[in-house]
Design a protein around this nucleic acid. Structure first.
Lengths: 221, 221
DNA sequence: AATTGATTGAAACAGATGTTTTAATCGCAT
DNA sequence: ATGCGATTAAAACATCTGTTTCAATCAATT
């Protein structure tokens, strides 16, 4: 009954449920499938967790704690350049997006819940995503001109996470658009490098255009 | 019984089904809900369409035809600059992504099917998305250096559509991250302008970096 | 007006799914 | 060994959902 008993029925159920919830969602996953996969009796879910929804909440909470524990940003100090922070942020983000399904299901379940919150976990979804958003905004504030509007800051942040998340939610589309070899060659480092270069180029162009922009207009007149 | 009879039961069922399929997906939408919303009898779906799946296919096919008809790229000629083509592509793409749910459900249903293809419509999803992908690749080939790799071309295309689609699939997240006024101020023109500027800046930086890159390496040695 | 085919309405059916019940079994302290 | 609480097993239950059935109704034609 210990929480750390790797062979306990609860553990096996959480593991099976996590994989299936992450892959097919709450509604499309049946209690029977979970129990069969976990090698447990049909009544085990209700006995150990009360009902299916409480099992789901428990699974999402554990997945969230797992992510906080395992997928961490590296430590920064005051000498770390903002460009490095952005690169770190993006590669960490990709670590979740591209986690192997099946083996590591926790980030996928959390991402699914964040993108399409269940009523039960809506609050967790909000509270888990906001700090990351603020970290990214902080990095971008260092990279962009001081007088940038909050709105443009947010649009820039959305552009970055949008690029990353695309590989998560459009995985099937990507697989059908490019040849198998190219798809297989996608990995965290390569994709993170592309998104970092692409975004930094756009950000630095925006930063450089800030002051000279007025001058250029003068010239054109 | 006419296909254009706006008051026919088929029409009302397709309209109700489209809205609900687009919003909640195939599995989470029940035949009973559709018929109630359409003011039709429970047996109407099976009588007019055979079964629920064939109703779904018919609804997706009509939505797809509607999109081809209504959401079109403007005409280009050989004098149209590639930057303009990219701007056109992005704003057209946003026209689908940000369509008003409820009133205009067709683009959302097609997007949903493209991102998470049902077995029944997988082929349609693939065949409808590939031409758009090739159009975007063509535009990017004009903007990027000639010797760009296919892979980098594709990654750049993914960066652009990823930014656009983010506003589609992460709508709930966005709403919870920014204040209501800012969310309400999002419209097709503004978002398309941001994504276009962001992406063009990144692309042009990449184009300019192409030749000088080797020189810079020389200098560093 | 009568007939015929298409459509609609109401009820029932069959299968799947979450939950509950009740008895059997296991682990362990006494 | 015994008794007891925790766990598991098997079956049944209740509800939901897609589908079918069959009679009633409607619309158009003769």
């Amino acid at each position: 009954m210990s929480d750390n008993d790797l062979e306990s029925t609860q553990r096996r159920i959480i593991e099976a449920a996590g994989i299936m919830f992450a892959e097919r969602g709450f509604e499309s996953t049946t209690v029977r499938d979970i129990c069969q996969e976990a090698g447990a009796n049909l009544a085990a879910v209700n006995y150990h967790f009360g009902d299916k929804e409480r099992l789901y909440i428990e699974t999402v909470l554990r997945a969230h704690r797992w992510c906080i524990e395992k997928v961490k940003l590296p430590g920064w100090d005051e000498t770390t350049p903002a460009t490095q922070k952005l690169a770190d942020f993006i590669i960490t983000f990709f670590g979740r997006v591209l986690s192997d399904p099946g083996d590591v299901w926790q980030p996928r379940l959390v991402l699914r819940e964040v993108l399409h919150p269940t009523a039960a976990c809506a609050e967790l979804a909000r509270s888990s995503i906001r700090p990351e958003f603020e970290i990214l905004n902080g990095i971008l504030r260092e990279l962009l001109p001081d007088d940038i509007s909050e709105e443009e800051l947010h649009l820039t942040a959305f552009s970055i996470v949008g690029q990353c998340l695309f590989y998560f939610f459009a995985d099937g589309v990507i697989r059908s658009l490019i040849v198998a070899d190219e798809y297989a060659s996608h990995d965290v480092e390569k994709l993170a490098r592309h998104v970092t270069n692409f975004s930094l180029a756009a950000i630095q162009a925006r930063a450089n255009a800030h002051q000279p922009a007025a001058l250029l207009e003068e010239v054109e007149r």
